[in-house]
Amino acid sequence: MLLEIISELLKLTIFAGLALAGILAILIWKKNLTTKVTYLRTFVQVVAMIAFFYIFSYTTWLLLILVVIFAISIVLGRFFCGWLCPFGLYLDLVAVIRKTLNTRYWSLPEKLNRSLHILRYLLLVFFIVLPFMLGPIEAWQWSLAKFLMGPFKPISVLLGPVEPLIIPWESPLKLYGLSFSYPYASIITFYSGENFALINTFIFMALTLASSFVVRRFWCRFCPTGASLAIVNRFRVFKWIPFLRLSKVEEKCTKCGICKRVCPVQVTDVYEQKGGDITTSMCMLCLRCVEMCPYEDCLKLSMAGKTLFKSRNWLEPSKIT
């Protein structure tokens, strides 16, 4: 047992080390300012994924993890989605593969994108509120109630995206002694029964990967976990809560449209709103728009009034002699 843990630890350390070295190498090789944040973000995502593995191996108390995630989201808004969520990382990696294949993504029509965003809240209501409403009425008689409180209980649904690829518990998919999983796979397994668990997981994997191959971060556009994190950004009354805010200086924005084009979840508010606070519930604070906006101090990420990162003339560093 101990030996196994040590070997896993070793593997992960090597993996993390390699990832870190790779990213550093890319960073040094590519002095381009427009991708620095993206690389940093990928790095943080990888670290977060490993962290989730450890969290899962030390505690089985899922509720605690969820509470922590919510606590983070109250302070940081959807920062979680852009920087920490492992599922987000997988979807980003799919996009990297797509880029290397020189294929362009599809953009969803704006209306559809907005309705997907609404769907996210409906899913959240469905998974969180309904069980509690149905529960007291008819106890455990209702099959729907059973179903929702059982395999699809809110905690596992909301924690679905943070399931790391390698997990410390038993799973139907084993390779070289490692248990592999995928976001939502444990729920699917739970629900599918012995024979179909693997097939269903694969179908789900294929669907999510294929959809995010053609549309950037497709899952994230209606993910219910994202909704729970987004709520504090959704309603004006809560505006004072998240300390992380994106803002724009109206005069500096030339409406060049770059921010709109580069946003992986097609947020249009950054472009369309005049200025001031432009944080929205759709935005996952990945900062791609901030790093790509070519005008100094136009877009800004601030925390409790302090500027953390702002847009700048990214042509600057490439000094030619």
Binding site: T103, T254, K255, G257, R261
Partner: peptide
């Protein structure tokens, strides 16, 4: 003054970026 901001270096995205650059920031 305005640079072409390319997100992904595919033909289509580059072209879109060029098109945006000439139209959108123009005053």
């Amino acid at each position: 003054y305005d640079p072409v901001g390319v997100d992904e270096w595919t033909m289509e995205d580059m072209f879109n970026a060029v098109a945006d650059r000439y139209l959108l920031p123009s005053t």
